[in-house]
Design a binder for these strands. Structure first.
Lengths: 195, 195
DNA sequence: AATAAAGGAATGAATGTTCATTCCGTCTGC
DNA sequence: GCAGACGGAATGAACATTCATTCCTTTATT
């Protein structure tokens, strides 16, 4: 039993170290040896926990996707009206990215990377599905405009990505005032006018 | 004189081949040897035109940024009203990405890549500056909401990126109806209501 | 005009480096 | 004292880059 716990700890250590280094240096800028050194373990040890480098990344990818979705639903009240729920989700997500830049950079860097497997991408979509359902609900009930799903995602998710990227790149932090104003503008983009 | 022309042609050949391969395989998936083979030239030849692989990428990056900005201003009428000009720019840009997926993928893949130098990024900002001025003009004259510049860019540029990515990833093409509706929604996000 | 010499361009095999991964000797907890 | 965990040197593949050589175009010479 204790072994399992120790194992878990070491695995987590590897994952955390990998996340930190990958976000800074990218996939090919972080050799296994570097991960090992930074985690103060032997290079070979990593292969006790992960079949190879790709699998390590893929596992990390799924792990972080889960954390993001979790964070999004913090304080989410199913019974609230649509716009309120929208804003909770939107603000939670941008806050999470803003507060966890390593995870943001990692997810963005690897979303379309060739070594993120089809399997991982499928799993990642599965994790995302409650959010998609939320959009479909809004369309059906005419809370939001009648637009193709991808357009809606683009209008809502696109600004989050770009805003966080810009601020990261310029070493600035998003303030909650900025975030709330942006959430409002985003809502203006998708809200249904003829309701 | 003829030498110069031949030189240019070969350089262009290398750049085009590199773009095609990089978009498909990414930086580390396309060895110099592969570029050489696909361009039907010797590997060493590439080093006659570019100091090293990084410089090749950097030059390509700037070249493509220029093409994009050029495409944006196609049919742009300086005397038209603000919303009209906004829509021309927006639609031109998303159309360009939609029609030139290799260039889109390349730019997106490399925007934050570590081997894209600070210099390249500065140059790329310089190329972008007319667009920034356009936003400032809109803010000053209250055509668009009073929001921080990065928020505005996020609201306008973010959806373009995300929409194109989604459609590319699912092998679909954006229709002009979709594009125009999205442009409208985007305008709803940033337009000033109390004017 | 024909031929030769020069010089730049192109080549791709050779080199040296950088990794991912493996392997085996050592250590640890029971 | 042994079974599994660990470390890190060893291995070999992949790659960027170099450079001695060849090829081709231009220029000079007769």
């Amino acid at each position: 039993m204790e072994q399992v716990i120790i194992k878990q700890d070491k695995k987590t250590l590897i994952l955390n170290t990998t996340l930190r280094l990958l976000s800074k240096n990218g996939f090919h800028g972080t050799p296994i040896s570097m991960i090992a050194e930074n985690a103060s373990i032997g290079a070979g040890t990593i292969y006790r926990y992960f079949k190879n480098k790709e699998e390590l990344i893929n596992e990390l990818f799924i792990e972080i996707k889960k954390r993001i979705i979790n964070a999004m639903y913090e304080g989410y009240d199913e019974t609230a009206d649509y716009e309120t729920r929208f804003r909770v989700l939107w603000v939670n997500m941008i806050n999470y990215y803003n507060d966890n830049p390593t995870e943001f950079v990692f997810i963005e860097q690897h979303r379309y990377a060739p070594y993120v497997s089809t399997l991982t991408r499928a799993e990642s979509n599965r994790i995302l599905s409650p959010v998609l359902l939320f959009f479909l609900e809004g369309k059906k009930n005419k809370y939001i405009k009648h637009l193709p799903l991808y357009t809606i995602i683009g209008l809502i998710y696109g600004p989050i990505i770009t805003m966080v990227k810009l601020h990261l790149d310029h070493n600035k932090n998003l303030t909650s005032i900025q975030i709330n104003k942006a959430a409002e503008a985003c809502w203006d983009a998708v809200k249904c006018n003829n309701k």
